[in-house]
Design a protein around this nucleic acid. Structure first.
Length: 483
RNA sequence: CGGGGCGUGGCGCAGUCGGCUAGCGCGCUGCGUUUGGGACGCAGAGGUCGUCGGUUCAAGUCCGACCGCCCCGACCA
């Protein structure tokens, strides 16, 4: 595996993506259609995503719990819009232990229903609120068409579920978690995102309002990288989630749910990758620094490996994720290309010259070509590495942001919209109706991504008209091709 | 489910007017020489040709059915 390069992005973006995932050994196809095997390198990346998010959830008062994989079919049916939205993609178990089951069990596509059921038992009084729960789990949705990490039949994710006393508190929670997703995407994954509200067409089945963070991939398509939903009292009413308020009166709770999945890994691949393969932002890279020893003779080897061990120990001591590639059957040149394809942000070389001079060679993944190699002293290597990794992290964000910004277009009318839509996203006054959105989708293949939160204020929207159908506008919406 | 492509060692492919022992590149194993941008030599290992059935003296090759995968569309985190 992992020889030579990947298909260039310009030649075939889909092929490039698949090549990168397979050749860099993030994942493999599974024996079952639409399913994937996440290999150690890919799983470690996911674990880094996980811990970045989990830390933020805990810091905002959420607790992890685990709810069952199987859900009684009848639960799904309790919320009309929810069952309607999910029934086409359910996997259902009808036989257990060789016996036909009395009631079919759904393999969870999401857990609002089981968790709603649990919440109804846990919550008695306003003193039990807010209830802030998260679970890390796998879910199954029978998709028509799948793609590694972006859309697989089974995927890993986190789903937060919370219950509150008032609409306002639920809304505050919904937006707080959206902010947390943005913070992770921007600061850890180095992907700029647009926060916004989903159109009725794109909204989660069973939610009052859905919010999203949308990222732009290398081919200018959009990817929904996380969603946060204000569920209103829909699930509270369906599952009888009630509390006794201060006036001794029964009230329905207001609930939220929010999720980020292994799709985030796909976003990281597509937002940063180049023709050489992956580029990992240092904060979440499974390997931050790869160290390649170089020597010819046994005598050189002894000295080089001695220096390698010393430098490696000092980096590991400050918890830099370092890998020493001491395979002797491969040439350094091969290793350079190999680790570049795998997206390791920083490469360090130590050879006889470095031993003689007390130096190491550094090469940054985010700067193309080999001319960026710099020789730095071993003395004070830790602060040097820290600084360079930090530079790479910020450089990647800057690069992704300028690419994204170059491909955002504000347009006045549908004609202009059609002109720019193959070349990025278009911001346009939009009525938000399903009919109008479907028409746009048929004409251009673009769907509404969101009504950006920071570009919409009510005063302006009240006067505006939809640029496509002329009906009163709901706000300015971004449209684009999407995964 | 509609359209397109494809199933031959681990990976990528050739062989497909039926014919003899199924071949090539990469990878893999051993030994030696190599090593600052994808090393080389020598010697090896590894294949029910997707499955089932049919035609034939003879099937990877022809016919039929089935299974599976990938890409493009309708559904979706």
């Amino acid at each position: 595996m992992s020889q030579q390069g990947v298909t260039p992005r310009s030649k075939d973006y889909s092929k490039w993506y698949t090549d990168v995932v397979l050749k860099s050994e993030l994942a493999d196809y599974a024996p079952v259609r639409g399913c994937m095997i996440i290999k150690p390198y890919g799983y470690e990346l996911w674990e880094n995503v996980k811990s970045g998010l989990d830390t933020r959830f805990k810091a905002t008062g959420h607790q992890n719990a685990y709810f069952p994989l199987f859900i009684p079919m009848s639960f799904l049916k309790k919320e009309a819009e929810h069952v309607e939205g999910f029934s086409p993609e359910l996997a259902v178990v009808t036989i257990g232990g060789g016996e036909e089951l009395e009631e079919p069990l759904v393999v969870r596509p999401t857990s609002e229903t089981v968790i709603g059921h649990a919440f109804s038992q846990w919550i008695q009084s306003y003193r039990d609120l807010p209830l802030l729960i998260n679970q890390w789990a796998n879910v199954v949705r029978w998709e028509m068409r799948t793609r590694l990490f972006l859309r697989t039949t089974e995927f890993l994710w986190q789903e937060g579920h919370t219950a509150h006393e008032t609409y306002e508190e639920a809304q505050e929670e919904t937006l707080r978690m959206l902010d947390i997703y943005e913070d992770f995407a921007v600061n850890d994954a180095a992907i700029p995102v647009i926060k916004g509200r989903k159109s009725s067409q794109e909204k989660f089945a069973g939610a009052d309002t859905s919010y999203t963070i949308e990222g732009m991939m290398g081919n200018k398509w959009a990817l929904q990288m996380g969603t946060s939903h204000n569920l209103g009292q829909n699930f509270a009413k369906a599952f009888d989630i009630k509390y006794l308020d201060k006036n001794n009166e029964q009230q329905f709770c207001w609930t939220t749910s929010w999720g980020v999945s292994t799709r985030m890994v796909g976003a990281i691949i597509m937002a940063h990758g180049d023709d050489k393969g992956l580029r990992m932002p240092p904060r979440i890279a499974p390997i931050q620094v790869v160290l390649v020893p170089i020597f010819k003779t046994e005598e050189e080897k002894a000295k080089v490996m001695d220096a390698v061990a010393r430098v490696a120990d000092s980096l590991l001591a400050v918890r830099i994720r370092l890998h020493v590639d001491d395979r002797e059957e491969l040439t350094p040149g091969f290793k350079f290309n190999d680790w570049e394809m795998r997206g390791v942000p920083l490469r360090m070389e130590i050879g006889p010259k470095d031993v003689a001079n007390g130096t190491v060679a550094l090469a940054r993944r985010d700067i193309p070509g080999k001319e960026d190699k710099q020789i730095v002293p071993q003395e004070g290597i830790i602060p040097t590495i820290m600084r360079v990794l930090n530079d790479i992290q910020h450089g990647m964000l800057r690069q992704a942001r300028s690419f994204r910004d170059e491909n955002l277009h504000e347009v006045k009318d549908y004609e202009e919209f059609k002109k720019v839509i193959d070349d990025g996203w278009a911001l346009i006054w939009h009525c938000g109706t399903a009919e109008c959105e479907k028409r746009i989708q048929e004409d251009t293949k673009a769907s509404s991504r969101c009504f950006p939160l920071d570009l919409n204020d009510d005063k302006e929207s009240k006067k505006a008209k939809c640029a496509v159908c002329g009906k009163p506008a709901e706000g300015k919406a971004y449209f684009g091709r999407a995964y």
